[in-house]
């Protein structure tokens, strides 16, 4: 009887003494220099990862001639960043206005993010805390949509939109983005772990309605999970390219991804001057908000970094 309790306490103490969250590395008996070599390899990969972003930031400050004519990884005069930024507010290419695309993207990401979070929370709660007929089959149906190619849904969506008049409609972009199998999976797991069934039953005994239980007990207990789902949806919508490419033909509805791609076509095919720096600056402004969001809310991303390449 007492021996399991002993070992339990003992190992807990051992863990506390170990302090670090991993086994002390001298125990591995590594050859000298191994840590240095591995750190250098990681450093090389970090350079590989950071170089394109650094290139983007540096070249956003250049004129078109300097983008092509000066070393890519260093600055050049004249410092053209502010001119490039102000060009984002003008329709210099005939392809559309970057600022408008930024506004559209913010709108799509915010509305779809909030909607998807609410739907995922509702459904995750339904699957986690109730056993109703067909629950398992429906959950498997939801999970199987993870494997459905986005190409195979975007084109059919367009075909249906053409019938019901949702082509070039904001809702045609927002509503499908609210369907999130990963969101439901995360919310179900999260509610399973952090909303005790006894608490819900107790509230029921006290006469609380189901809606009230959801709003006043379940939602407050799952805030970290909700933030994770919100962030993942925002990133997925922000980065989505195929769906908006297919359903929007009017450039004033474009999100950033489609806008930038049409700008790049203009920059390459047309002879319109000074488009390349605008393209580069536009890319930088597209990336920065998400990187900032990510650096500040990293733990939420890690918590649910499950969002598959299926949504890319």
């Amino acid at each position: 009887m007492s021996s399991p309790a002993h070992t339990g306490r003992g190992s807990r103490r051992a863990r506390k003494q170990g302090a670090a969250d991993h086994v002390p590395i001298h125990l591995y008996g590594l050859r000298r220099g191994t840590v240095t070599v591995l750190t250098l390899i990681c450093g090389a990969f970090a350079a590989f990862v950071l170089a394109p972003i650094a290139w983007l930031a540096i070249n956003a400050t250049k004129t078109q001639a300097n983008v092509y004519g000066t070393p890519g990884f260093w600055f050049a005069r004249p410092f053209h960043l502010f001119q490039n930024l102000s060009a984002l507010g003008r329709n210099i290419s005939g392809a559309g206005v970057y600022l408008q695309w930024l506004g559209n993207t913010l709108l799509y990401a915010a509305v779809a993010g909030l909607g998807s979070t609410l739907l995922s929370a509702l459904a995750g709660y339904g699957f986690a805390r109730f056993r109703f007929r067909g629950a398992n089959a429906l959950f498997y149906l939801v999970m199987s949509t993870l494997l459905v190619p986005i190409t195979s849904v975007a084109l059919p969506l367009f075909l249906v939109y053409a019938r019901v008049g949702l082509v070039n409609s904001v809702w045609g972009m927002i509503l499908p983005s609210m369907v999130s199998p990963v969101g439901i999976y995360l919310m179900r797991t999260y509610i399973d772990a952090s909303v005790p069934a006894d608490l819900i039953n107790a509230a029921r005994m006290d006469g609380a309605s189901e809606t009230r239980i959801f709003v006043q007990i379940v939602l407050p207990l799952t805030v970290p999970g909700l933030v994770t789902v919100l962030l993942l949806t925002v990133v997925a919508v922000w980065n989505n390219y195929f769906l908006p490419l297919i359903i929007f033909s009017r450039s004033r509805l474009y999100p950033l991804t489609v806008g930038l791609s049409s700008l790049s076509r203009q920059a390459e095919t047309g002879s319109k001057a000074e488009l390349v720096p605008v393209l580069i600056t536009g890319g930088l402004v597209t990336v920065l908000p998400l990187i900032v969001l990510f650096l500040f809310l990293e733990k939420y991303f890690r918590g649910g970094a499950l969002q598959g390449s299926t949504t890319g």
Binding site: P52, F294, G312
Partner: peptide, 19 residues
């Protein structure tokens, strides 16, 4: 290492095209 997750595929392809 995780940062590129925040970079849209369109922007990633654009950067690499120039590089």
């Amino acid at each position: 290492f995780f940062l590129p997750f925040a970079v849209p595929g369109v922007v990633a392809a654009l950067m690499w095209s120039f590089l």
